[in-house]
């Protein structure tokens, strides 16, 4: 008797779980218009009427949310232009807020069509995603408190360097300077808070980022302005999504003719960097580094 009851209950539990699972899956399939790990092609995006672009939402001034809840920044400016030229209106873009460490996964699982989240081109990433022509260039910078300013990598030996997971700074220091202790965080905000609290001796990420931050935070200076290789930042699409990649490439070339990225710089980066940075050191027009 008891066994029978338990058997029945187990059956019910499993059936309930199964039903719930199916219901949810179906529900969602409806929303996303047929789920597939394969990225949408250019014509599928056109048919759908919106393009899904992954951007940062907490990386001022490249991608951030202003006090009215609107997404802004250098990357966002480009994203809106892409939507305008592809779909006719800059409102036809659905922004997906991504984290540094999961940018590749968003493309691989086709959750977004394009990543425009300050994505630095590296050989390792090239194996996982396809990069379009670059629209920016950067090297790494190291910011530290004035009281214990770090001006040379040798000074970092046995000291704690803060990095954000999944960034080029993390890879560069763990591969080339194993003598430096790394303190890793998932998000930029946490990393800056850690530097301010003194949990690390210095913080390294793209030089644009640290220069802008040091300008606004008295008592901190970028001791090392350029380290590592000169990297480029480019839009990325899922590996093999050639049609979309070609379109973005030709779009970037066209935009170069109207000096679009200089305008983007003026609108989004200049208010933050002031005259500290020469736009020629950052902006890449028409994919020509």
């Amino acid at each position: 008797m008891k066994k029978k009851l338990l058997g029945a209950l187990l059956g019910i539990t499993m059936a309930a779980g199964l039903l719930a699972g199916c219901g949810q899956a179906k529900d969602n399939g409806g929303n996303t218009g047929g789920a597939a790990a394969k990225a949408r092609t250019l014509s599928e995006i056109k048919d759908a009427g919106t393009i899904k672009i992954g951007v940062f939402s907490d990386k001022n001034p490249f991608g951030y949310v202003d006090s009215n809840g609107k997404i802004q920044g250098y990357d966002v400016y480009l994203a809106k232009r892409l939507a305008k030229d592809l779909l006719g209106s800059e409102d036809k873009v659905e922004f997906v807020y991504v984290e540094a460490a999961s940018r590749v996964e968003y493309l691989k699982s086709a959750k977004v069509d394009v990543i425009l989240a300050n994505f630095t081109v590296t050989d390792e990433r090239k194996e996982q995603v396809d990069f379009a022509l670059p629209y920016m260039k950067v090297a790494l910078g190291v910011v530290s408190p004035d009281a214990a300013l770090i001006t040379d990598v040798a000074q970092l030996k046995d000291k704690t360097l803060i990095v954000v997971k999944g960034t080029t700074a993390e890879t560069y220091f763990s591969e080339n300077h194993p003598e430096v202790k790394l303190l890793k965080f998932d998000e930029y905000q946490e990393a800056y808070d850690a530097l301010l609290d003194g949990r690390g001796d210095a913080f390294s990420t793209d030089n644009t980022e640290v220069l802008a931050w040091a300008l606004q935070n008295k008592g901190f200076t970028v001791g090392i302005e350029s380290i590592g290789n000169l990297d480029t930042i480019a839009p990325a699409v899922q590996k093999g999504n050639k049609e979309l990649l070609d379109w973005i490439n030709s779009e970037i070339e066209t935009l170069g003719k109207e000096q679009f990225f200089h305008k983007d710089f003026e609108e989004t980066l200049k208010p933050v960097y002031g005259d500290e940075i020469d736009p020629e050191n950052l902006v890449v027009e028409g994919g020509q580094v």
């Binding site: 899956a25 529900d27 969602n28 789920a35 597939a36 790990a37 996964e105 086709a110």
Partner: peptide, 16 residues
Amino acid sequence: YFGAAKHLNVNFSGQM
């Protein structure tokens, strides 16, 4: 979130 989309072609929203 990512695994199901990649291997099972089931695309859940983040909240789901």
